[in-house]
């Protein structure tokens, strides 16, 4: 079920700024567990699970993904493109892509053969402007189907690895969205007092923009931001590991007492947890929430993920499940505590 949801949303495109295109998908999954649904003006999806108290809790995970945008239609069926969000050009080489023009168009991104790449060129890092999408169409046909500003994504189907590991594009931050769905399911089983707003934010990858407008609209008492964090690989051994629990962040941009409370709840109920220190910018929606209106106290929880911003992002589903349950438990505990006291400096 969790895996089906992730596979479904990871194989659909929600490129930053174009989150409205597949707008039927999220409501289908969230509506059974929530009471109302609306969107903010930037396109963030807001699902509300109503409680009995006046307390509003906002969960935020961004639905948008990095993508490509057509900048020029060239002779011979080639398309120049720029990126929407941060992409390492090297990760695009030899990929299949889907261009979302008037209709879906398939293409490939190639690279100069090694035989004729000289030593000097090899040393230079690739740039986006050196790459092209090859569609195979003659230009006169292509201009009828594709316009400057149309978007494209890497074409990659989600993949089950061994055990509970999966690999897909856009697990940053669909893994966070999946955590929200897990929390929604858990909360449905208990009678929670707080109003909980599950927010799939728009345009995080271009500057946490949807989080700014949606948090202004919701005006919550606290924020729980769900992201992905760097997971351990053989070349980066001192990082959190996949399958050992979500990563809770400590740092100046996050509320220390609320974070402490979350850690206590996880310890009390034996939910696995890993830790990271983020002294400055987190580069997440928490950044936006913290300074919305009068300020929103936030915690930041990340799912360990390998190969961020490539089409083979890899996570362990256990971390998503555990994070979802831990947050539901946390909300339940907050319902029975004096929130004002926790938030008081």
């Amino acid at each position: 079920m969790l895996k089906d949801f992730l596979f479904d949303i990871c194989s659909s495109q929600f490129v930053s700024g174009f989150e409205h295109v597949n707008s039927h998908i999220l409501p289908k999954y969230f509506k059974p567990y929530t009471d109302s649904f609306e969107k903010d003006k930037l396109g963030s999806y807001i699902f509300k699970a109503s409680g009995t108290s006046e307390t509003n809790i906002m969960l935020a995970a961004h639905i948008d993904e990095i993508g490509l945008m057509v900048t020029e239609i060239l002779e011979g069926g080639f398309l120049s493109f720029t990126s929407v969000g941060g992409i390492n050009p090297a990760s695009l080489v030899a990929q299949e892509v889907t261009v979302f023009g008037k209709e879906k168009i398939f293409g490939v991104i190639g690279i100069k053969p090694p035989h004729i790449t000289d030593a000097e060129e090899r040393k230079k890092p690739l740039k986006l402007k050196d790459l092209y999408i090859d569609t195979g169409y003659p230009r006169e046909d292509l201009v009828k189907m594709v316009k400057v500003g149309d978007i494209a994504t890497i074409k990659r189907e989600p993949l089950s690895l061994q055990g509970s590991r999966i690999s897909a594009k856009a697990l940053d931050d669909r893994a966070g969205v999946a955590v929200m769905l897990e929390t929604a399911k858990e909360l449905k089983k208990i009678s929670h007092k707080s109003n909980v707003f599950f927010t799939a934010t728009a345009q995080e990858e271009t500057g946490t923009r949807g989080a700014k407008t949606s948090s202004y609209k919701i005006n919550p008492h606290i924020g729980i931001v769900l992201e992905v964090g760097f997971g351990m690989t053989p070349d980066m051994t001192d990082l959190p590991q996949l399958g050992k629990g979500p990563i809770v962040a400590f740092g100046g941009r996050l509320n220390a007492k609320l974070t402490k409370k979350f850690v206590e709840v996880c310890k009390k109920y034996n939910y696995p947890l890993q830790y990271e220190a983020v002294p400055g910018r987190t580069g997440t929606d928490a950044e936006a929430l913290q300074i919305t209106r009068e300020g929103i106290p936030c915690i930041l929880l990340s799912i360990p993920l390998r190969y961020m911003h490539t089409s083979v992002e890899t996570i362990d589903l256990k971390d998503v499940e555990n994070a979802g349950k831990a947050i539901a438990r946390f909300i339940n505990e907050l319902d029975n505590s004096d929130l004002e006291e926790i938030l008081c400096f």
Binding site: K41, K147, V148, G149, R209, G210, T213, K217
Partner: peptide, 23 residues
Amino acid sequence: QYEILEFGGTDAGPIHLSREGVP
């Protein structure tokens, strides 16, 4: 003509993020 500028920004940047967002 359509324009994609790969650097810079305009007044529409902060305006569209004002309050609940502005198309």
